[in-house]
Design a protein around this nucleic acid. Structure first.
Ligand SMILES: [Mn+2]
Ligand SMILES: [Mn+2]
Ligand SMILES: [Zn+2]
Ligand SMILES: [Zn+2]
Lengths: 135, 135
DNA sequence: ATAAAAACGCAACATTGTTGCATTTATGGT
DNA sequence: ACCATAAATGCAACAATGTTGCGTTTTTAT
């Protein structure tokens, strides 16, 4: 339920936040801000930006960026406890060049990346290609 | 030499392009558009954007994006033949949280990522943490 | 019910990137 | 070296994206 979802992340429940969160819950893949705007009947742009920022800060959603001015948002996995920074947990992002959808995918085994001389905090992996629906 | 570098990528040699390319050649790490602007005495912003676009289209430089509105540019490896799309070859990107520098790093062995049901064209890997200088 | 803190909505602003167009420059062929 | 052509430049105007300030409204804890 949307209300408890927000509460669990220490976010106040408001009508607008419910609407925005519903967009995420009703979409299988990542959504852009434009996508959200299209799905809201009427809204204030500034409030939307602030809502998204709050959601990100509290670890409810995360941001996915790719070269070519691609920026999308997706729900964090339920167990995500990270706040205010990218925490893709152990999943990767895949962009289909046909449908332009971006998928959050759980890898069976997340690869071990060793970078000599660097202290690695987090790793992000992003793939591009063709999704199963488009191929 | 800058002139042949441009020619090899089928880019015309101009005074402005030389200046921009020199910025890349004189910087060890990735640079933002703001970085470039700071290093140029005087310039036209529009021409700079178009220059960068040309450089990217011809595979002279590539774009590195990370969550948090981070966008930087770096020279492609010499052997890079890809045009107009992200081709990190087989290197990864590492962002140091202290100095905020972004490094293009060659991994000894680039990991094999297998994504069931998806046809993978390219993989990008980005790490964050502390670089060797800052630690 | 009340009070404090947070979120909202509006306006104004800032930053980042693009398009059109006239002028200048680079380059390949003569 | 000269010329014709295509490309690059510089300026203005515009578009898209994101932010800040502030008075009002709503949520939540007491
Ligand atoms: Mn994700
Ligand atoms: Mn790189
Ligand atoms: Zn697809
Ligand atoms: Zn560092």
């Amino acid at each position: 339920m949307v209300k408890t979802l927000l509460k669990n992340k220490k976010l106040r429940f408001t009508a607008f936040r419910k609407e925005v969160l519903d967009v995420f819950l009703n979409t299988p893949n990542a959504v852009s801000i434009g996508d959200i705007e299209e799905r809201l009947k009427q809204f204030d742009r500034i409030t939307l930006y602030r809502t998204i920022k709050s959601f990100m800060e509290k670890g409810l959603i995360h941001e996915i960026v790719m070269p070519g001015d691609i920026k999308k948002l997706a729900l964090c996995p339920a167990e995500c406890s990270s706040v205010n920074h990218v925490h893709t947990g152990q999943h990767i992002h895949f962009r289909c060049k046909m449908c332009e959808n971006i998928f959050c995918l759980d890898l069976h085994e997340f690869p071990e990346i060793n970078i000599p001389k660097f202290k690695v905090d987090s790793i992000e992996i992003q793939g591009t290609g063709i999704c199963n629906i488009c191929s």
